[in-house]
Design a protein around this nucleic acid. Sequence first.
DNA 1: GTCTATATGACGATAGAC
DNA 2: GTCTATCGTCATATAGAC
Lengths: 221, 221
Amino acid sequence: MTVRTTEGDPATGNVDRAAAAGAALLAGGDLWSDLPPTARAIVVAAIDSFADRGFHATTLRHIAAGSGLSTAALYVHFRSKDEVLFEVSRRGHARALGLVRDAAAQGPPEHAFRTLVYAFSRWHAEQRTVARVVQYEFAALGPEHREQVTGLRRATERVVRGVVAEAIGGSAEDAATRGVCTAVLSLGVDVARWFGPAGPYTPDGVGRLYCELAERMLVPR
Amino acid sequence: MTVRTTEGDPATGNVDRAAAAGAALLAGGDLWSDLPPTARAIVVAAIDSFADRGFHATTLRHIAAGSGLSTAALYVHFRSKDEVLFEVSRRGHARALGLVRDAAAQGPPEHAFRTLVYAFSRWHAEQRTVARVVQYEFAALGPEHREQVTGLRRATERVVRGVVAEAIGGSAEDAATRGVCTAVLSLGVDVARWFGPAGPYTPDGVGRLYCELAERMLVPR
DNA sequence: GTCTATATGACGATAGAC
DNA sequence: GTCTATCGTCATATAGAC
């Protein structure tokens, strides 16, 4: 954003600190490392296709080809195509919730807010394919799966609401809190739609940009 | 957002003026009014299903049922399911481009910026179903259709880029301009994902909220 | 312009051999 | 645990009567 050359500039320093803290939160291992190798290959192939074509346009033949198996072999590892989606969605939502929880634990409140915005946006850029499935294939989940995932979504929103309220210095029910909360969640989520490695941004760049813009949202001009 | 009781408060006044100007831009007629009645019924039914289930999960039987026709009758009015999507997507994109163009013509630059943010966000709330198809079924378009629509998307982004540059007082190539441009477009687009009539916002409320938050983004703290 | 009936193919999921 | 072969279903799209 605005170029700042001054050493120790407070605003840039804030973003730097949030970026450092956020990067540490994102350093966790692979989401699928505990799956058996074949199940993992299936999940990875499924994510690629879900993110690219969407759940409904993805066929078992796509997933089978991507994981080097026959369609019949998929059923040894998952009960159905829906169950593969659920596995991806559940873990992805849990990861997003974990991120915002970890960020919320970073005091002081304004630092927690910046770290949350940085980490949440950057994750949606870095893990763009998983994030796309998480955010845009939610409606494709079956009713009972959707309900489980809804719990994780609500928990995420509650955490963000609390962090924004503390950063603003208001209550979680204020319109101002709700407004900023809606905006920062929306900005982060939508990164999964528009971000691509061919674009002008790095994941870190997206995180820093939104960290700075979100901070500006906190205070009326 | 922040409650302001002062009469003639400049920031609230700015939002009010943008809301009035934006509301006027949105007052145009139905997007499909020039279609023959049957084609129109098909398009409306298709939009509902595309927005609800997505293009790939929508079958011709859904569209047929929604428009009170048999699947065979659909082919009298459209060559294929893809062509229905293209008609919706093309007109929706053209409408969004028209909106931002009209907003850009409102001087002075900061008023144009506020009006653009207001109108763009509010349209995505008010016309949520069309906007969902426009924004989230882009990838479902065939290659040649996608290319035509890409032109409209690029034109929209160019207009927004120019308005943001003028409001910031920088060039269209500045990182600051690009950053704010990305954010306001993203916020507006994502409204189509999360907005619902059951939620806490009205379309006007979304427009006003984002109008104010976007204005705060313009100036470093 | 709309209908019923149908062609053609791909889908998710299963059977049974190895 | 993986394969080939296939089942039953439903998709898009067409044919031909009215």
